[in-house]
C-alpha cells in the first residue's frame, strides 16, 4: 500500500538554511546538505528546499547546495523558489533535484506549467499554491474561499485557490504543494478545510503545508484533510519533533506510514 509522506522543508537564503515566522524574522541555522543528511537518517520520505533568496545573483549558492545534497542523500528532493524560465528547471534537475516547485511564475505566465510539464514530464512539476482565507459573499450568505498569493505571500492575485488547483492539474502539474498563509508559522495546525477542499477536487497528490505544530496536526492533515503528504519546516528544524517519533505516532493511529 502507498504510504503517506512526511516531508521536512528547508527554507534557504543565500545557500543557508533559515526559517521565517510568517515569511519574516529569519533565523540562520546551517548548511542545507548537512540538514538533508540528518533528515535522511531520521526517515524523512522526501525533502523540500525552498529558496527565498530575493536576488538572482546568489543563485549559484543554491545550485551548489542542491548538488551537494544530491551527492549525499538518496531520497527525492524538490526545489522551489525563483523558477522563472524553463532553463531554471533544467539547471535544478541537472544539479540533482527530482522535482521543482513553481509558484509565482505559474500565475504570471499561464503557459509556463504546461510547457514545463511537456518538456520535463508531469512527475517533476510541483505547483506551489500559497492560499489565504477570504470571506466571500454568495447568494446563500457568507461562505469561505481562499485566494492565491504570489511573491512569497506578498501579492494577492484575485484567483480562487480551489479553481486554480484544478487549472494547474489540467496544465500538467504532477503534484500540488498547498500552503495556508494564515497558518504558516502559527503552529495551530494545517488549514484542514482548505486541504480537504482541494484534495477532493484534484486527482493528483497534494502536500499540506503551513501550520504544523504537533503530531496530531499531521494526523488531521492526512485523515481529515486527505493530504498525500504533510510538510513542516521549523518543527523538525528546531528539533521540537523528531520524524521517528511522529511516524510511530501516526502508525499507532492507523495511518499508512513507511516505518523508519
Amino acid at each position: 500500500m502507498l504510504t503517506k509522506r512526511i516531508i521536512p522543508c528547508l527554507d534557504i537564503k543565500d545557500g543557508r538554511v533559515v526559517k521565517g515566522v510568517k515569511f519574516v524574522a529569519l533565523r540562520d541555522a546551517g548548511d542545507p546538505a548537512d540538514n538533508a543528511v540528518v533528515y535522511d537518517r531520521e526517515g524523512a520520505d522526501e525533502i523540500v528546499f525552498l529558496d527565498i533568496t530575493a536576488s538572482s545573483e546568489h543563485r549559484s549558492t543554491l545550485i551548489d547546495a542542491v548538488e551537494r545534497t544530491a551527492d549525499a542523500v538518496f531520497m527525492p528532493l524538490t526545489v522551489g523558489g525563483g523558477i522563472n524560465e524553463l532553463d531554471d528547471i533544467k539547471t535544478l534537475l541537472r544539479a540533482g533535484a527530482d522535482k521543482v516547485s513553481i509558484n509565482t511564475q505559474a500565475v504570471l505566465n499561464p503557459d509556463f506549467v504546461k510547457q514545463a510539464s511537456y518538456r520535463f514530464g508531469a512527475q517533476c512539476i510541483v505547483v506551489a499554491i500559497d492560499a489565504k482565507r477570504i470571506s466571500a459573499s454568495t447568494e446563500g450568505g457568507k461562505s469561505v474561499a481562499w485566494e492565491v498569493y504570489i511573491y512569497g505571500g506578498r501579492k494577492a492575485t484575485g484567483i480562487d485557490a480551489v479553481e486554480w488547483s484544478q487549472q494547474m492539474e489540467h496544465a500538467g502539474a504532477g503534484e500540488i504543494l498547498l500552503t495556508s498563509i494564515d497558518r504558516d508559522g502559527t503552529k495551530s495546525g494545517y488549514d484542514i478545510e482548505l486541504t480537504a477542499e482541494i484534495t477532493k477536487r484534484v486527482g493528483i497528490p497534494v502536500i499540506a503545508s503551513g501550520g504544523a505544530g504537533n503530531m496530531e496536526h499531521f494526523y488531521e492533515g492526512f485523515v481529515r484533510g486527505g493530504a498525500d503528504a504533510c510538510l513542516a519546516a521549523s518543527l523538525f528544524h528546531f528539533r521540537e519533533l523528531s520524524i521517528k517519533e511522529l511516524k510511530t505516532y501516526l502508525q499507532n493511529k492507523g495511518v499508512a506510514i513507511r516505518p523508519v
Binding site: 500500500m1 502507498l2 504510504t3 503517506k4 509522506r5 520520505d45 508531469a122 512527475q123 504532477g174 503534484e175 486527482g203 493528483i204 497528490p205 486527505g226 498525500d228 503528504a229 513507511r258
Partner: peptide, 13 residues
C-alpha cells in the same frame, strides 16, 4: 479514483 488513489502513483510503496 473509486479507491481514493491519485495519479501519478507517487511515494513509498
Amino acid at each position: 479514483a473509486g479507491k481514493g488513489l491519485k495519479i501519478p502513483h507517487m511515494g513509498w510503496n
